[in-house]
Amino acid sequence: MSLPGKRVTRALLSSSILFFFAAFAGAAETTSQIVQVKIGAILASNQGDEFDSRLAHLKKQLEPLKYRSYRLLKEESQKVQRKGNATFDIPGGRSLVVTPQESGTKQLALRVHLQQGGKPLIDTTVRLNSGGNFLLGGPPHEGGALVISISATAQ
């Protein structure tokens, strides 16, 4: 191979490697101050066979719960500062408080507190990837169970 050809090849390869490495490592180093928290309150029950079309993106995730019917009761999104509280009213007189503890652009730690009529139901701290979600379920509601999908994205 000619000398200029070698230089071009080496330059292309090294710049590509640096480019992709930046995508991996660079993002992980920075911290994000604002987190978008999105919740979806879902009624899971065995009454009927309805599957709410707005829950299509969660269908696979809900399948292990083995309920026959899923209906989206409420969907809400809030932007919150790190260590700030995002409070969501949940059907059944409940409230959900989500507090981002640590937030990088790739991973987030969330403190999630669910209460009903001033009585705490659950308090948990969860670490998840930015843009990822998890399900919190169990509280009874309208003859079924309430399932809350909680996702968070660093911005």
Binding site: Q61, L65, L114, I122, V126, L128, F134, L135, G137, G138
Partner: peptide, 8 residues
């Protein structure tokens, strides 16, 4: 997916 289930 992680599912947290609260039993009443």
């Amino acid at each position: 997916t992680t599912i947290i289930w609260l039993y009443q």
